[in-house]
Design a binder for these strands. Structure first.
Length: 716
DNA sequence: GAGCTTTCAGACCC
DNA sequence: CGGGTCTGAAAGCT
């Protein structure tokens, strides 16, 4: 989602009349808001922040540098220049961090931006803590103003800020609950980081809730709908953004972004209706207010025509067309239909979300944000039921990055109706993987990467002495969540590492999968990283970074992508080769350290769990592993580095106590749209381990070309 | 496929 | 008129 070409889109001036931008931002003070109880304890920030393991920075939401990726003009706040700000606890606290505050996928936030976002952390002992009056215990009571409808939103603006209880892990296993407070500014108007934070938080919570539910002996009565539960918690605690409805761009949501639940779009502010297909708002039109459409979701419930990637024939709502229990009737020119009609006459832009069937999970849908459209025609016609229906012809505003059009192309490639432009090889694995991997170059004449042998997993050059006898679980069929008799599950702290549809729930020091001596079936859910590729990948030539890896399929956060295959090397051998001047750009080394640490797991505080319920995210590897994919390897060798990656690696142990079964598995950090390059953070060699390799960059590092707003400049 | 969910808008009432 | 409360609609999800 990051680094996409979708950001910064502004409709062409011909169709972009500033006078029609109806969401002029009210002038607001951006001075941070602070707790001012008479006896509030002093604001101390150091305890939860550090010391940290080497290479890790604390997770610190909302202290974000406003990079160029942030959304366009709707998103530009001015920072106040009041001198008193420098005396505020926030700016004063910023320098207490060992490392600059950090946002997932973003580094080097600073006091300036903290102030801009008006974020605060309050000590839990503060008598401002909203927990005291049970504020958090009842979602219905929590943040009542957030439940107000549009008409009563004024109250929300005058109202107090929203308090959020989150815990901050100090990296030593002990967490301390803090109250994070931020004002209606962030709730009303988002940006890329805010949207990312909300969606990451949502999915982590949803995965955890699914995990808890699936571990129950008798599912049912619990959380059947983890998506609704997670969204409910976040909405009641104010972890959402872009609540202020607007026509046009939603700041922080880029054309091409994908969603797996309707509630994700609610939380991000792209489409505020949890079920309805048409979202609208009221604007002044002459003397009276009138409704205008802001966004629609087309997902096949009605008889729409969505064959063309740039044109959509959308049906109006109502008439009970898709409700079996009710009598069908003519649609009325009211609600969403009226709003679309008004938008047609006013020529307003309407955001369009296209719902498509998920290839991986055909029962569910993927929602693709396809950018801004305008309504060109509107008419009524008799539907199949014989009743009148409204129809609207929406045409995509030109100049926007490809989104739904990509999906259409990919569908054709898969069906063989048209072949991929620049296709060199239909399957570079020569059948070594169960799913083919295309080799594509549509930028220059290079016919392929240097020769290597495709091998899907690890290869050892020496045989390991089994220091400990290897033993697995005793499950006869498939290991089941919640079965604490399964020793593999117990090794994972009692939690099944994956949800039933194969999504990794949380990063862990080490994920324990079932191994060769476990009697469970080969497609036991606890062998996720051993069962080959899950999505249709292609190796492609990038513009400036050699070959890269990307997917034809949409990828959900937590999806297993591939392992790092190759030859396992001795450290000695690696140094030897380096001394001999032999370069190897295809090394994976578990001892590398990370400046751009990110937080991926759920916040226990949002579930009223003990902080210990959240596995810590710092890897604990039995012994260092160095893999060379120079001569032997799989698709992972083509994954490039990025400072704001969309993939992370996770150590996985296939069996107990046996280092020869340690593997490196890659998982998606967030939802990744098709044809978005897959990247992970290569990290840095620890300084005592490497020698100067090159004169070009400091300390033998390579110049980073990831192009993200928080790029550190170098890696390696 | 039925049944259980949500959010928001709109109506109603004080 | 403003604000609280209730109800119904809705292109979801398992």
């Amino acid at each position: 989602m990051d680094g996409g070409s979708g950001h910064g889109f502004v409709p062409p001036s011909a169709s972009f009349d500033k006078s029609r931008v109806l969401d002029i931002k009210p002038l607001r003070s951006l001075v941070p808001v602070f707790p001012n109880p008479p006896q509030a304890p002093p604001f101390v920030c150091s305890p939860p922040f550090g010391p940290f393991p080497p290479g890790f920075t604390p997770f610190y939401p909302f202290s974000v540098a406003q990079g160029p990726q942030s959304s366009p003009e709707l998103n530009q706040h001015k920072t106040p220049t009041g001198a008193t700000n420098h005396e505020t606890p926030i700016s004063a606290s910023a320098h207490l961090f060992r490392t600059p505050p950090h946002f997932p996928g973003v580094v080097n936030g600073d006091a300036e931006t903290s102030r801009e976002y008006g974020v605060q952390f309050l000590n839990e002992n503060s008598n401002m803590g909203a927990k005291q009056d049970g504020f958090f215990d009842d979602p219905k009571r929590a943040a009542p103003h957030l439940r107000a409808s549009n008409s009563s939103r004024k109250k929300a603006k005058k109202s107090k800020d929203v308090d959020i209880s989150l815990s901050v892990d100090n990296g030593k296993g002990s967490s301390k609950n803090f109250v994070m407070r931020f004002d209606s500014l962030q709730l009303d108007d988002g940006n890329r980081e805010m949207v990312n934070y909300v969606l990451t938080t949502f999915d982590a919570l949803r995965r955890r809730l699914s995990q808890i539910e699936e571990a129950k002996e008798s599912p049912g009565g619990g959380i059947k709908r983890a998506d609704l539960k997670a969204a409910n918690i976040l909405m009641s605690k104010g972890v959402r953004t872009n609540m202020r409805k607007r026509i046009g761009v939603t700041p922080g949501v880029e054309v091409g972004d994908i969603f797996f639940f309707r509630m994700e779009m609610c939380l991000a502010g792209l489409h505020a209706q949890s079920m309805a297909g048409i979202d609208y708002m009221f604007v002044k039109g002459g003397l009276e207010e009138e409704p205008v459409a802001v966004s629609i979701v087309s997902s096949g419930g009605y008889d729409d025509d969505a064959d063309d990637a740039d044109v959509l024939i959308y049906s109006g709502q109502g008439g009970n067309v898709n409700r079996k229990d009710k009598q069908v009737a003519d649609q009325k020119l009211e609600r969403g239909n009226l709003a679309l009609d008004r938008s047609f006459h006013r020529a307003n832009e309407v955001r369009v979300v296209r719902g498509v069937k998920d290839v991986v999970n055909p029962l569910s849908k993927v929602y693709v944000y396809d950018g801004l459209y305008t309504i060109q025609e509107s008419w009524t016609e008799k539907g199949k039921s014989g009743c009148n229906m409204f129809k609207y012809k929406l045409v995509r505003i030109p100049g926007q990055p490809g989104a739904f059009a990509h999906w259409k192309s990919i569908q054709k490639w898969k069906e063989g109706f048209s072949s991929r432009i620049g296709l060199i090889l239909p399957d570079l694995t020569s059948g070594a993987e169960s799913i083919p991997v295309s080799l594509v170059n549509d930028v220059d004449d290079e016919k392929g990467p240097a020769h290597f042998t495709y091998f899907p997993t690890l290869r050892y050059s020496r045989s390991f002495n089994l220091k400990h006898p290897s033993f697995g679980c005793t499950c006869q069929n498939a290991c089941l969540p919640g079965d604490l008799n399964c020793s593999c599950i117990r090794k994972n702290g009692g939690d099944f590492p994956y949800t039933s549809n194969g999504i990794l729930v949380a990063r862990r020091p080490l994920v324990h999968e079932c191994g060769p001596t476990c009697p469970c079936i080969p497609n036991c859910k606890n062998r996720m990283s051993q069962t080959g590729l899950k999505v249709r990948l292609e190796v492609f030539k990038t513009n400036n970074r050699g070959w890269g890896l990307r997917s034809w399929d949409p990828i959900r956060a937590g999806t297993f992508i591939c392992e790092y295959a190759g030859e396992v090397l001795d450290k000695v051998k690696v140094y030897q080769e380096r001394d001999e001047g032999e370069s190897n750009e295809y090394l994976f080394d578990t001892t590398r350290v990370y400046d751009n640490a990110f937080k991926w797991n759920h916040e226990p505080g949002l579930l009223d769990e003990e902080p210990s319920a959240e596995p810590n995210e710092y890897y604990d590897i039995p012994s260092p592993l160095i893999i060379s994919a120079k001569y032997v390897g799989n698709v992972a060798r083509f994954m490039n580095h990025s400072c704001s990656p969309n993939v992370f690696w996770q150590p996985v142990l296939y069996e107990h106590n046996n280092e020869s079964f340690l593997h490196i598995a890659f998982f998606a950090i967030k939802h990744i749209p098709p044809l978005t390059e897959l990247t992970y953070d290569y990290g840095m060699l620890q300084s005592e381990n490497y020698e100067v390799q090159s004169n070009h960059t400091p300390n033998g590092k390579k110049k980073c070309l990831c192009g993200s707003s928080n790029c550190t400049g170098y890696y390696g």
